[in-house]
Design a protein around this nucleic acid. Structure first.
Lengths: 151, 151
DNA sequence: CCCTTGGGTTCGGATTCCGAACCCTAGCTG
DNA sequence: CAGCTAGGGTTCGGAATCCGAACCCAAGGG
């Protein structure tokens, strides 16, 4: 009867969820993975208000997901680039995209394609067992609470 | 110089991102995957306000991610259960968790463990090439825009 | 000198969020 | 049968966010 109850503050799903489950953050990351780096480009490609963009970029930099870096164009400009921590979010975005492709695809299909650069194959995302290699769905996984929550 | 620009409205990342990048939605799904089904249980386990919970559950039902179902306890009650579409979000949540484990883990470690039910192995999430099987990072993937955006 | 460009900041109004209080229905309790 | 409780909500007003538009600033360029 009692369901598994886990501390919001400590769960390693809820912490990132709180960060990514903020308006614009996922879209910002999508743009970043597509190669957008400059304030102006984020702004025009996403149609986000400048003030909110400033704020979101700021929190992503604080969180160490983006890095703000000066570079010389014709004069000093700034870029926002994914850090290692940011790049490591790739599976999340890919999983999201795969789900979107399957369940929310507009009639015309996805708006861009992804392929393995060297062999041209499709990109897949899989949840699998590290030991036996079987592909896993939610039902194949046992959840073991380690600590107790909201005491 | 020009970065890849994609229509927000049509991209299969941004559509789900708009849905999941809404406060509480990811946390709600986490709870759902942990087995929470009842309004009351969602409310107490996440400490969300009842009105917002009503609304979020509503949109997830509208989107076909949850299904509202009557069942008999001692009288008629309702449960919110993941549909197939909802269950298919598992890789997203797992990817999120893996990232959280690596980058935002509290000192005490994650608050619950996941293991393959039959063999006990760890759960992994991998982005890989469907053709050659190589594990892929963002840099190994070529993006090809198919349609043009914001015309 | 004035204009443009990138990268912001400020400001007021419009939305959303949230907590607390309230509602309704069935059983159960006395 | 009066009242209490539990589940599952709805309503409401204040607080926090969001957003668009306007403004700021530095450095080239014409």
């Amino acid at each position: 009867m009692a369901h598994v109850k886990v501390a919001d503050e400590l769960c390693t799903v809820s912490l990132p969820a709180a960060l990514l489950g903020e308006r614009w953050t996922l879209l910002l990351l999508r743009q970043a993975f597509l190669g957008t780096r400059r304030f102006e480009d984020f702004q025009t490609s996403m149609d986000i208000s400048r003030s909110v963009l400033t704020e979101r970029l700021g929190t992503l930099v604080e969180e160490g997901i983006l890095r703000r870096e000066a570079y010389k164009d014709v004069r000093t400009r700034y870029e926002y680039r994914l850090t290692e921590k940011g790049l490591d979010l790739y599976p999340v975005l890919m999983a999201l995209r795969k789900w979107g492709d399957r369940w929310m695809s507009p009639a015309e299909g996805p708006s861009f394609d992804l392929h393995h650069r060297t062999c041209g194959g499709d990109v897949g995302v899989h949840v699998s067992c590290e030991t036996c290699g079987t592909e896993l769905s939610a039902r194949d996984v046992r959840v073991t609470p380690l600590r107790d929550s909201h005491p």
